[in-house]
Design a protein around this nucleic acid. Structure first.
Lengths: 254, 254
DNA sequence: ATCATTTTTTGATATTTGTCAAAAAACTGT
DNA sequence: ACAGTTTTTTGACAAATATCAAAAAATGAT
């Protein structure tokens, strides 16, 4: 009671040193990026096909729209560093968060078929992306098959991710949802070569709440409860998972 | 108050005639089935490739496992008639419903990559399926490209469906979830050539509850509320949507 | 560093939903 | 048609979460 307040234990002020193992900005190596499978393929295919799919690096400032709903499909984006949220605007309830994107992940492949993007995508922080126009596929001839295999691989991964996500959202309690959400982020960071125990939580709590179908206040209170159970610590936007096993048992499916 | 009870208005006994427009069993025409795109492709390709993908009709009794978790991938199934649920078994909370499958829909394409099915699939009623072994793809040579385009098309559809589903699950209230669930089913029936206003609800309410992360009792009470608002009627397993606009405004995103 | 703005936290209260128990209704097989 | 079983419905109450209002903390700009 008189030793330390919870605040002293778990939340840093701007003077407190932050977690040294947690990077200030996540930047994925090209080898860890989902675009890499494509690129490796093009290298094998030779220069001419590679030129069709020229990938260009581009910075995106915080709050900028990378994709606006309804824009014609012009290719896919890979996140090099930073993070994004995708959302749609519903008449009645305003913005609805559809998902978050982390370094190494692809945006927009699902718009290939309909021909236009069905959502908007905004940078949550200063970020960089690589862009791949995906035009002139037919010029590849029979090598197109290899390309398609890669597309199928990625789509199947995405189907599995989305289904796990649906499961997550079906969970009842705020603890289950938020726990599963954090473990989901941890797994995605780890899959791309980052520390899955200490990472940035780049989105606002109000966006997490919107995404998980909870109120902002419940997200805040549940995070406090996790801190009090010593499952994790939060310093600013930096999160450290202290007891992943326990968090997993709370989240139930991950 | 003394005219009719709600029960008289909206629920039939076994003597009451059921909705004539709602079929007792949904059976999709081959032209409406997602497998049809494949089949059309094989016809174009000639007999030899068609023989690789020989599709066989097969009845499945109620309660039978079509797929058991962990079984090696041996092809995809298309539902000709009836319905199925997919589920996984979690240590702690038992069965977790992952989704429902209706006539015209495909099961198992996402297991192509991992090589084994990640869930079990059980018939909710007496059903028939078509099976396509998906082996010997390489023998197709450069026609494989056409096949893969079809796979991509289906996977993209599935990604979009799953993302809409995730959205559904993120909705807070029981009315929003159940309304969105029913409209989702309606859309899927309609897409395969059935009446989207009067259709069977082949699954148990307890399975709907499990899937939506609600209690069985809340599902029952919410359906009653929908009946009292004259948004729909239910006679046994037969559902009729009376006021889709209002249901849509309750469900918010559909 | 300071001030204005945004974001998070906290408390009090209302609403929604889950849980438990029991009754009613629907389904199943004979 | 009947009896046993499963499924759905209902009521009472407990638990979880939303909402509203206000304070505290963090962030951003000058």
């Amino acid at each position: 009671m008189f030793f330390m307040t919870r605040s002293d234990q778990t939340r840093g002020t701007h003077e407190t040193s932050t977690d040294p193992e947690c990077p200030d900005l996540h930047e994925v190596a090209c080898e860890q990026c989902k675009l890499h499978g494509f690129l490796a393929l093009f290298t094998e295919m030779g220069v001419e096909s590679h030129s069709i799919f020229l990938s260009r690096r581009r910075p995106v400032a915080k709050g900028t729209l990378l994709i606006d709903v309804g824009l014609p499909f012009d290719g896919i984006y890979a996140i090099k560093s930073g993070s994004f949220k995708s959302y749609s605007l519903a008449e009645q309830s305003g913005e609805q968060i559809l998902g978050f994107f982390l370094p190494g992940e692809l945006i927009g492949l699902d718009a290939m078929r309909s021909g236009s993007y069905g959502y908007s995508v905004m940078a949550l922080e200063a970020s960089t992306v690589c862009w791949m126009p995906l035009k002139g596929l037919d010029a590849l001839g029979d090598q197109k098959t290899r390309f398609q295999e890669e597309v199928i691989r990625i789509l199947v991964d995405q189907v599995q991710h989305d289904q796990r996500q649906t499961l997550l959202m079906g969970r009842r309690t705020a603890e289950e949802r938020l726990g599963a959400f954090l473990l989901n982020l941890a797994g995605r960071y780890q899959r791309h070569g980052f520390n899955g125990e200490a990472f940035r939580l780049p989105m606002l709590q109000i966006d997490i709440a919107n995404y998980l179908g909870l109120s902002m206040e419940t997200v805040s209170r549940t995070l406090r409860s996790f801190r009090e159970q010593e499952l994790l610590t939060i310093q600013g936007k930096k999160l450290r998972i202290l007891n992943a096993d326990c968090l997993r048992s709370i989240a139930q499916y991950c």
